[in-house]
Nucleic acid binder design. Structure first.
Lengths: 140, 140
DNA sequence: CAGCAACTCTACCTTAACGTTAGAGTAGAG
DNA sequence: CTCTACTCTAACGTTAAGGTAGAGTTGCTG
């Protein structure tokens, strides 16, 4: 499928997807006669993985590092034991940082909710005009 | 207090704090004889507010917009009714977008956790060498 | 008071991750 | 064929920050 559909399905902009190619993060599996990028389901899956990793604050290079490792682990031709262990070690390292980054994300969410509460409180104290336009108490 | 202590207390780098001044986001209340930035507790509070807003993806300009509004609402000299209502309206708008952005943050966190689970599953399936180095099952 | 370590200043350059725009080419329905 | 909707490359712009150099400031300390 071509870039527009991929963008629609992944929620990433075509520009972003092209950027990911520039940095070697997700290379389309093929090109059409005329040069259009053609993506497979596997490519889309990879883009999805990137999207899930993004909020964790990894750089594109880091994500490429992880995706390359898992790709090689899943490859048809099995890598030899030594390299396999090295790859697994790398994935383990990513798992650790991911755990830490998720903690950080949780913290940020908590802080943001705290901030939102402050905002609501301020508006609550200061009488507005049309209460019906307010958010339905977003289950804080 | 000067920038180093502020950095320590806010968790922001001195460089970032200076950057916030360049964009007009947080201007230090005073300067020393020799030109050192001097911050008050109020300045620090403002920086803290910025830090809480940051994960929500507001631009620095947007944050300045909100902080300026609340500052003027809290000012000693009360603004006239018309302007006050305008300011409140602005704050209400921010509250709405904040609510939406928090939802988005929650979604991203969920996706990230999903990703982390995938990573763990992959490592679980592929036997490692030293199980003791693994994270203590970060209460997924 | 001279000296010094630790800190801070300005100014400018660099980076990451896209967004925007222009001008040209492609796909495929009719 | 011929549109219309996409897509391409290339280059420049933007946002938020980090890095660095060279000079100045603070405030102690002997």
């Amino acid at each position: 499928m071509q870039i527009g559909e991929v963008a629609a399905r992944t929620g990433l902009s075509p520009r972003t997807i092209r950027h990911y190619e520039e940095t070697g993060l997700v290379i389309p599996s093929a090109r059409s006669q005329g040069g259009f990028r053609l993506y497979t389901e596997t490519d889309v899956a990879r883009l999805m993985a990137v999207r899930r990793m993004k909020p964790l604050g990894f750089t594109l290079d880091e994500m490429r590092g992880l995706l390359d490792a898992t790709d090689r682990l899943d490859a048809a031709e099995p890598v030899d034991g030594i390299e396999r262990e090295a790859l697994l070690e790398r994935v383990r390292a990513y798992e650790q940082t991911t755990a830490r980054k998720i903690e950080e994300l949780r913290l940020q969410l908590a802080r943001a909710e705290d901030f939102a509460a402050t905002l609501r409180a301020r508006l609550g104290r200061a009488p507005g005009e049309d209460t019906s336009t307010r958010a339905p108490a977003a289950h804080a």
